[in-house]
Amino acid sequence: MNIEQARFNMIEQQIRPWEVLDQAVLQLLAIVKREDFVPPAHRALAFIDTEVPLPEGQVMLSPKVEARMLQELKVQRHESVLEVGTGSGFMAALLSHRAREVITLENRPVLAKMAIDNLRRAGIGNVEVREADGRDGLAESGPFDAIMLSGSVASVPQTLLAQLKPGGRLIAIEGAEPIMQATLYTRQASGSVAKTVLFDTVAPRLDGFAEPTRFHF
């Protein structure tokens, strides 16, 4: 496989048509080597329009969903970012190039170690991987300028929204199959939180977040 051609095709044929037009994001996807964050057994899937299997039944989101979420979060170089759901560390790597610092939470030890190793090999020094449950965020290290939920939840907990600075943004994929929506929350100067639905997609659940009660008749 010609890796650079495959990377180019991923960007031009999958990501750009999905309304990812921020040139800085597109350049970043050309620089950060996605294949280095994919388990060796699945490296052939690194640039395919699909979720990539990770240990313990987890996945990397598809490239176009990762790219669109990164674009919509609009992280700036002076900002601090919290990610929930580290996985292989690829999204944390992308965020690291746009932020001052990134803290990423992963509750599965195997994945936390994988991410630490991948980020170290990539020479990334402004990401801290913590082995922790992410549903309550990390209030002691907040508030944050941006929060990324790298997976889906039924709904975003208020505890996470409370950890946004004024002007801070949180992006998450909310809902239940077959209908989920990528949603952006923005904390206003008044303290209220504005909600914007961005696009429809589907993603696997993040661990530990509450599910709505289902009634059985």
Rank of each mutant, 00 (worst) to 15 (best):
M1H: 08
N2V: 08
I3H: 01
N9L: 10
I11K: 03
E12A: 13
E12G: 04
Q13P: 00
R16P: 01
P17T: 15
E19Y: 15
V20Q: 02
Q23L: 13
V25C: 09
L26G: 07
A30P: 00
A30G: 15
V32E: 12
F37M: 09
V38P: 02
P39K: 14
P39L: 10
P40S: 12
A41Y: 07
H42A: 14
R43P: 00
A44M: 07
E51C: 05
P63C: 10
K64D: 07
K64N: 05
L70W: 02
Q71F: 11
Q71M: 09
Q71H: 10
L73N: 00
V75P: 01
Q76R: 07
R77T: 15
H78Y: 11
S80G: 06
L82E: 13
S88L: 11
G89V: 10
F90Q: 02
F90D: 03
A93E: 04
L94V: 05
I103Y: 10
L105N: 03
R108M: 14
V110C: 01
V110H: 01
M114F: 07
M114V: 15
A115G: 05
A115M: 02
L119M: 11
R121G: 11
A122M: 06
I124W: 01
N126T: 11
V127Y: 01
V129H: 02
V129P: 01
R130C: 03
E131K: 12
A132K: 11
A132V: 04
D133S: 14
D133V: 10
R135H: 15
L138M: 12
E140C: 08
G142W: 00
P143M: 08
P143K: 07
L149W: 09
S152Q: 04
V153I: 08
Q163K: 08
P166H: 12
L170S: 03
I171A: 13
I171D: 12
E174R: 10
G175S: 06
P178H: 14
P178C: 13
T183R: 10
Y185A: 08
T186L: 15
T186V: 11
T186D: 05
R187V: 10
S190K: 06
V193Y: 13
V193H: 06
A194G: 02
L198Q: 09
L198N: 07
F199C: 06
A203E: 06
R205D: 00
G208R: 05
R214I: 13
R214V: 12
R214P: 00
H216Y: 08
H216I: 10
